[in-house]
Simulated scan of single mutants.
Amino acid sequence: MGSLILSRLVQAAVLLIGVSVIGFTLMHLAPGGPLAFYTNSPGVSTADLVQMKHAFGLDRSVAMQYLFWASDMLRGNWGYSFFGGRPVRELVFERLPATFELMGLSMALAMLAGTGIGVVAAVRKDSLFDHLVTLWAMLALSLPTFWYGLLAIFVFGERLGWLPVGGRSTLGAGEDIAGHVTHLVLPVGVLATVIAAQWSRYSRAAILDVLGQDYMRTALAKGLSPLRILIRHGLRSGMLPLIALAGLQLPMLVGGALVTETVFAWPGMGLLFVNALSYRDYPVLMALLMLSALLAVMGNLLADIASALADPRIRLGRSA
């Protein structure tokens, strides 16, 4: 187990370095730049632009800029936003609770609903319910997340008027728990629906594979209850592939949260990323890029560890 964790940590470090180099280079090679906003401003002269470029360190080569940025990041200094001058770490930490709330609730709801639907569809294979679930999953995975968000806003916000369509709370409502919950319904529902569709397909396939095993047929031949066999033996074996899926889905969850936050004006890291991208705010973009990459890498690492703990064959294979 120790060698598994150590090898994964080394791979994670190499991957994060590669992400930082590629991301930093692509940002600086893109047309425009953070000072393009001031180029056509009548109150900003050429001398002012040169001075700002020097102050932000943009007059150095891309390689030197990267080295200075990487050195500061390792010391915990994430830099300052080009627009507003606030510390990047302060900006990001302000948005983290909203994003983690959205991602956590969506993932929990998707895992519970998707797994339950997939198990029932596997047990009732080729039934009407199974076909309807397959159709729903295909539709959910085929269309983009923002389309579902716009559809939810149109139906539940504009037409029916049941739910608020943006923000995290009602302006001037203060600490209104009920109002906060109503603001959560649409973004969590949209994001959880897309993720649950994938969970339902994987859980259905996993349970179908388990139901065809010899030990399941033997247990049935001994007269044990099918429900008891499914709960005590089928779910335990069938859920092992889903443990790895949970870690692999984290990048999808982060990307889905970015789109969902933008559609519903949810004040999290996704909306901050879109705003920073519009203004080419490099320090904010790089901080969010690295944080997203770190979450994805840690998700995969935790999935590997959980799989090894749940299945001794994985540990034996690694030690061999």
Results as ranks from 00 to 15, higher is better:
residue 77 N to D: 15
residue 266 W to M: 00
residue 279 Y to D: 02
residue 20 S to G: 09
residue 95 R to S: 07
residue 27 M to Q: 07
residue 199 W to P: 04
residue 213 Q to G: 13
residue 53 K to A: 12
residue 15 L to H: 05
residue 284 V to A: 04
residue 89 R to H: 11
residue 216 M to C: 09
residue 216 M to Q: 07
residue 117 I to D: 05
residue 123 V to C: 11
residue 236 R to T: 14
residue 58 L to A: 00
residue 184 L to V: 04
residue 280 R to A: 05
residue 297 V to S: 15
residue 214 D to I: 01
residue 277 L to D: 08
residue 127 S to D: 03
residue 96 L to K: 02
residue 290 M to G: 12
residue 54 H to I: 01
residue 174 G to Q: 03
residue 223 G to N: 06
residue 252 M to T: 11
residue 314 I to E: 11
residue 102 L to A: 02
residue 280 R to D: 00
residue 176 D to L: 04
residue 259 V to H: 05
residue 36 A to I: 05
residue 208 L to F: 07
residue 177 I to F: 15
residue 245 L to W: 15
residue 271 L to C: 12
residue 67 L to R: 06
residue 108 A to T: 08
residue 158 E to V: 06
residue 227 L to E: 02
residue 54 H to S: 05
residue 5 I to Q: 07
residue 317 G to I: 08
residue 177 I to G: 12
residue 160 L to Y: 04
residue 124 R to Q: 10
residue 129 F to M: 10
residue 201 R to Y: 09
residue 163 L to Y: 06
residue 167 G to C: 04
residue 79 G to A: 13
residue 19 V to F: 13
residue 202 Y to G: 06
residue 45 S to W: 15
residue 54 H to T: 12
residue 95 R to H: 04
residue 281 D to T: 06
residue 125 K to W: 04
residue 164 P to D: 10
residue 306 A to V: 03
residue 278 S to H: 04
residue 121 A to G: 08
residue 110 A to W: 15
residue 169 S to A: 14
residue 27 M to T: 06
residue 9 L to Y: 03
residue 130 D to Q: 01
residue 113 A to W: 13
residue 70 A to M: 11
residue 89 R to W: 11
residue 98 A to H: 03
residue 80 Y to F: 12
residue 85 G to H: 07
residue 283 P to E: 11
